[in-house]
Design a binder for these strands. Sequence first.
DNA 1: TAGCATTGTTGAAAATCCTAAACGTGCGGG
DNA 2: CCCGCACGTTTAGGATTTTCAACAATGCTA
Lengths: 192, 192
Amino acid sequence: MSAALQNDEMSDDIGTRLKLVRQIFGLTQRELARRAGVTNGAISLIEQNRVSPSISSLKKILDGIPLSLADFFTLNFSPSDNVFFAGEELTEISYDPAISMRMVGRKVKDRTLQMLQETYQPGADTGDAMLRHNGEECGIVVSGCLIVTVGVQERLLNPGDAYYFRSDIPHRFRNPGTEPCVLISANSPPSF
Amino acid sequence: MSAALQNDEMSDDIGTRLKLVRQIFGLTQRELARRAGVTNGAISLIEQNRVSPSISSLKKILDGIPLSLADFFTLNFSPSDNVFFAGEELTEISYDPAISMRMVGRKVKDRTLQMLQETYQPGADTGDAMLRHNGEECGIVVSGCLIVTVGVQERLLNPGDAYYFRSDIPHRFRNPGTEPCVLISANSPPSF
DNA sequence: TAGCATTGTTGAAAATCCTAAACGTGCGGG
DNA sequence: CCCGCACGTTTAGGATTTTCAACAATGCTA
């Protein structure tokens, strides 16, 4: 079989995109293959851009995640830069010097969020089964500390640090400290 | 023409979706095949759902329209019901009895429109080469009459009638009458 | 260290898709 | 009426993708 890349830069690099999505959802090639009802070899070849899968194959694979074709082609999986914000990166939007209103992810568009205050007792953990639901999710740690896992990314957040991610990426919160953690969080759409 | 409105079942039905898109843009199988650099037979087979095209093939075909993969899977080609509105279907939103503000396509979401008033002299015609540009487009006929063509659909609009469609679907306006036609139109994004 | 499990990567065969070339239909002009 | 032309459809065969099975690399545990 002739080697290497066959297609001009492919249709936006389906292989890399699939691999990224698969990793974000924490699946191995074999696990995804099992769920999707295809072979692991097929996924390997696709991720290397050695083949251009048929729509039906790609559909089967995405069903194993699950993720729609529309979302697969539409979603902007640009993690690291837009997921975490250092405390000093938050935008102050209040004109009243007695009040501070600092906004997370000011640049994110089309927002319709609802904020909450959450408290995690020491050792509290949303659990091993990663959370997933529709919409977007955002939060700021007020006191204490919190380990947040989003897809393949994980970070210890201290007071002032924040996060912003799509809620259908598996996520998990843990308080590894010895004092309660207070977190201001928001979700969208407004219902939880 | 067997035209076009199955709305729901379409996610899986790539063939029907492609055929609908092709017809909306006024292309024959052969013409699209020529532009895309594939054979007309391939398009025929795909439209009949006798094969499930590879991503690279589908990408090549869509490039001939042109339409992105993301748009192809994302777009809701549900026009028909939402393209034309009879005069009495417009929504009155004014509370001042001295003023009437009647909204077109009240149900359409994510709107960011800009309105214009246009006047078409008798016989005026935007031309045979169908218009296409980004964004969405909306209008109401105030006086006179106007023949509006949107994709495969065409209709004579009288005063009070209106339209709403995506501007990248080829479209054309003609005034077939003997008096000027006044049209209140809007487009999005605000720049034209 | 050896053994075992799990990961991603290959080669050859089977399955599926795409092309080239034909076919049948419908339409309009001479 | 016949011809030419354009349309969508079909078929055989070459091209590409997918499966099946084996492989090397890594990590874990005894």
